[in-house]
Design a binder for these strands. Structure first.
Lengths: 345, 345
DNA sequence: ATGAAAGCGCTAACAG
DNA sequence: CTGTTAGCGCTTTCAT
């Protein structure tokens, strides 16, 4: 009994307001063009008829869906998606404020032994005009997709620097991981530590190398030794624990800066095995401020994902609405969330 | 130099194949209607022109966007979103296989002191024909949105039972939390525990009450006492730790079953404070199999979210393509991920 | 089995 | 400032 009738259209509103369809369209998209009284009449009609513009029609006409595509990687890619949840939230919120929605898609299931197609899913969405643009997040893998997308002239913005292609023309936003790690190192120094170890990933990840550089740079600036104080392992709790145990045995560090929360949790376990208390006895800092860090009282470098999302969306708007010049690269500073794992007392 | 020309349309394909537009449309949507040789010719043209149907046009014509809306709550709602990430992944994957994409939206920022609008965002998306249907996840709050959506005749499926409305007509999928907790309780009994405590939430949450019932039922069936062996606190590590400490002091439990991983982490902390080792000395089981549980070696009840997503999408298809009778309610069984926190040795 | 006509609801371009 | 005309690309009649 409630609303069995089909939704109102522009024509319905026009008729009720006694104007043409075009005028209604203008009332919505260019209110300034209308005389105040006409505008009021139209708005009244819109209200009464509970009118909402049909997106499909608008989309077809304007060739703009107001949708941005975000590909969800085949889960658990390395370490990055510990923060993915927060990022998605932030992106949805920032997009909403700009009048966009976020369309999620997957690259498709990756068959056993096959390499995932770095462009899987992008092409169809774009050519079918389902989305206006993409947000690309997994640039830490190297950046095959940014290259591929650029070749296809696909509008996109990247969360992540174009490490391997300084001449890349697309807009990007990234977080200065090296600076975050340097701040963590300085924080530990301020807590009285001098033998501060780096627990990072095996070479091959630009992000990992960047973070390590932050540690090394800070240590050097502080006049502290680095020799024998680092280990590179795969990202995992067990691997982190083993590496920490080994470092503790060989070079007596009193603090650890880690490339990820996962590794830091491993360190925590190694400390516990030796009866050492995090914070009081040995300082530990992780990276990503994941739920795990929050729950375990682990000090961690936190990426300003909300801010990242806002900049990405701003870049998108600039990209899609020519005229607005875009910042083509933005590097944001992370913050250090200090918890008990790095403070004495 | 690559693809500056606009994407091919149906008409382009028709011309190249020497048939009418309609025939091309049929080749795509009803291939059976074409003679094999015509079909081949058309497919050839499609291939050569790299044609992809324009979604906007199809959407306008068929009144179906092939998009399902999923609202992201204002972050951190209670405990549920520890698993949200996994669920979103699963839903995207299941949707893809059914030819749908997932549109994320937010309820809008909730102003200080205001109640969030349970229907915020839904209405516009629906009336603007931006989405075909919704997946509603936050039914644990009670279910104002299911009621509101039902009133608006909005097509939707729910992850979560209609606790307060057994007569609800919408399709739903849920996980049998009580059974999961009962299995956890039995597991602890099999490990030799008899004084198994329940650490749950304050009354008012149907989900919380359901999980507690699973513990109580299992304890009774096992002939074990429950008196003095339970506590109800707000969901948090600190609260969980305090409650565990109190129970340990008052009634000497040797194991804890918890309503969430968060509470279980609190228990772990309390044990550590007393020099007790999880597993060996005291058994602990959490709920949700979050990253925290995986990283800390916490035994936890795991919801089969992939399966949930598949059933939700199946229900959606049935809802949107009348004829296919839908199952209107599905209750799935969780599994117990056994780790060191609940096993001796 | 294929084609022709009509129109989904909207907005860009031009007239008035 | 407002109205008219045309058409975005597709699919649903209905003929053939």
């Amino acid at each position: 009994m409630d609303t069995p009738r089909p939704p109102a259209t522009l024509a319905d509103v026009a008729e009720r307001a006694g104007v043409s369809r075009q005028t209604v369209s203008n009332a919505i998209n260019n209110p300034d063009l209308l005389r105040p009284d006409t505008l009021a009449r139209v708005q009244d009609a819109i209200e009464h008829l509970d009118y909402t513009p049909n997106q499909a029609a608008r989309h077809l006409r304007t060739r703009s869906s107001h949708l941005v595509g975000l590909r969800l990687g085949p889960a658990q890619e390395f370490t990055a998606n510990m923060a993915m949840d927060r990022f998605v939230h932030a992106l949805v919120e920032a997009s909403r404020e700009a009048g966009y929605h976020v369309l999620l898609f997957s690259g498709g299931r990756v068959a056993e032994g096959e390499l995932p197609d770095p462009l899987g899913g992008y092409d169809d969405l774009l050519r079918s005009t389902a989305v206006d643009a993409f947000v690309v997040t997994d640039t830490y893998l190297g950046n095959p997709q940014t290259i591929g997308l650029a070749q296809r002239r696909a509008p996109f913005v990247a969360f992540g620097r174009p490490w391997d292609d300084p001449g890349a023309a697309h807009p990007w936003v990234d977080v200065d991981g090296a600076a975050g790690i340097a701040a963590a190192t300085e924080h530990l120094r301020a807590q009285g530590h001098e033998r501060i170890a780096w627990l990072g990933w095996q070479p091959g990840s630009r992000i990992g190398e960047d973070r390590r550089a932050g540690w090394h740079r800070a240590m050097t600036a502080l006049g502290l030794p680095t020799a024998g104080l680092e280990a590179a392992v795969e990202d995992g709790v067990l691997a982190g624990g083993r590496a920490a145990a080994s470092l503790l045995g060989s070079s007596a560090p009193t603090a650890f800066v880690c490339a990820s929360d996962t590794l830091a949790v491993g360190v925590l376990g190694a400390l516990s095995d030796r009866g050492l208390k995090p914070g009081r006895d040995v300082g530990v800092v992780g990276f990503d401020d994941s739920q795990v860090a929050q729950v375990m009282g682990l000090t961690s470098v936190r990426q300003p994902l909300e801010e990242v999302a806002v900049h990405l969306v701003a870049a998108l708007r600039a990209l899609l609405a020519p005229g607005h010049g875009a910042e083509s690269g933005v590097l944001l500073q992370p913050t250090l969330e200090v918890r008990s794992s790095s403070t004495r007392g």
